[in-house]
Design a protein around this nucleic acid. Structure first.
Lengths: 231, 231
DNA sequence: ATGCCGCTATGATATATGTCATAATTGCCT
DNA sequence: AGGCAATTATGACATATATCATAGCGGCAT
């Protein structure tokens, strides 16, 4: 799994965290000395929920799913993550455990940075700390919003929203590769895979989307938005 | 609503945030100069979701409900808050808006501290920043856990968990005042008020709890725990 | 006390959604 | 190319949960 570092220095790496822009040259140096790269094949686990959270992880390339392992083997997919995103979770600052799992969807190249180093920088660099707080807050807000969606919307609304999430936040296109299976789409929207299939079928009949098992094209974004909002 | 300050100095106030222990005398002075007290009657709104988040708020006394206003007037109660808790929400660091509402349940005395001051202290005092990050993280983790509970457990499990929350986290007693209506209990567990009534009735028949509209006594904690875990 | 209003309670019914069984399709490995 | 395994698809059915209607109860104001 572990490979030699491919990137010369974080300072000139365009694929890591935007909050690194606040670092001084020395801090870059420090982080650069304490990082390791690894690559993962599709479906391999990058972060395992419950294990000690010793590293902050950034994807350099590829796409991964972030999910909680719940009761009776049931997962809840929180979001998809690509490059420029900090993967660690709030558990780091509470009980030093990862509070979610992350698994590669495509081939993934990842950068591991020891969290003690990150903590040092947080203490030493107020700008970085502020960025860190913003990042934590953004994620907390999204989770809160997701909870509202999952609890208050009906299946059609939740699925519509998931499709818009792919289109807007992951692929920035009305036509995209469907990287999740129907089962996983269900884990993301809290519904049974059969329901996902059924509702995707309904959306197709109403000419809202065109879907194959591996791809989706949004044909009527207005309608999809209405469904997503009306719940 | 606004009253004169009743507390001489934060430094010797036993009812505010534990993270204030990291403050220097000067920082205490700064905060003390920029705070205001107010009191609220039951059901009055202390924080309104969506409004500009200019203040960090601490309850000095009383109990409040923290809730999100969702779709079609449906609320989702996140938790109850008493003294020693920071009320502000992650929205502060994202879009400077409160991302939840807070309403007084009992009579409440609250302390308002301008958030710019808090931000200054975060920048200047690494220990405070660290505590702030821990607090944010703890809350994010709890929300994440709540989302899992709400999405993966059935009604009985969710209600059992809510009762245990009151007993363990709010009142530290097996017998407590039920400060929420059946309707509100439903908003907390994502179920209709009629379902709350029904299931409380079932719990009573099985001698798991004794309940009146305004009080609950847990008779069989083991059973309640099992129900809460089995979902 | 009286009456009123909101909350609690209960039963009947409707609906959303999950589960199960089974078939069709796809992709993949040799 | 053939065949296995996994995924997708579809229909019948089960069930959890919401909704609706209505009744009872309790506290509060006059």
């Amino acid at each position: 799994m572990y490979t030699d570092n491919k990137i010369i220095s974080c300072e000139f790496c365009s694929r890591c965290w935007s909050n690194f822009k606040t670092l001084s040259a020395e801090e870059f140096e420090l982080i650069n000395k304490n990082r390791y790269e690894a690559s993962f094949k599709p479906s391999e686990i990058i972060i395992k929920q419950g294990s000690p959270s010793s590293n902050a992880i950034f994807l350099l390339s590829g796409l991964a799913k972030v999910y909680m392992e719940g009761y009776a083997g049931k997962n809840l997919i929180l979001n998809l993550a690509g490059p420029k995103t900090l993967l660690a979770g709030p558990g780091v600052h509470v009980n030093s455990r990862y509070c979610y799992s992350v698994a590669a969807i495509t081939h993934v190249q990842a950068c591991f940075i020891n969290f003690d180093i990150i903590r040092n920088v947080i203490s030493a660099n107020p700008g970085f700390a502020e960025g860190f707080i913003e990042d934590l807050s953004e994620k907390a807000l999204k989770i809160q919003q997701k909870m509202l969606n999952l609890t208050q919307k009906k299946m059609h609304g939740r699925l519509a929203e998931a499709l818009l999430y792919f289109s807007d936040s992951v692929f920035q296109s009305d036509e995209f590769e469907m990287v999740l299976s129907r089962q996983e789409l269900g884990e993301m929207t809290n519904m049974a895979k059969e329901s996902v299939v059924r509702i995707i079928g309904e959306f197709e009949n109403e000419n809202i989307i065109h879907a194959t098992p591996r791809s989706v094209r949004i044909l009527n974004r207005e309608k999809l938005l209405v469904i997503s909002e009306k719940g």
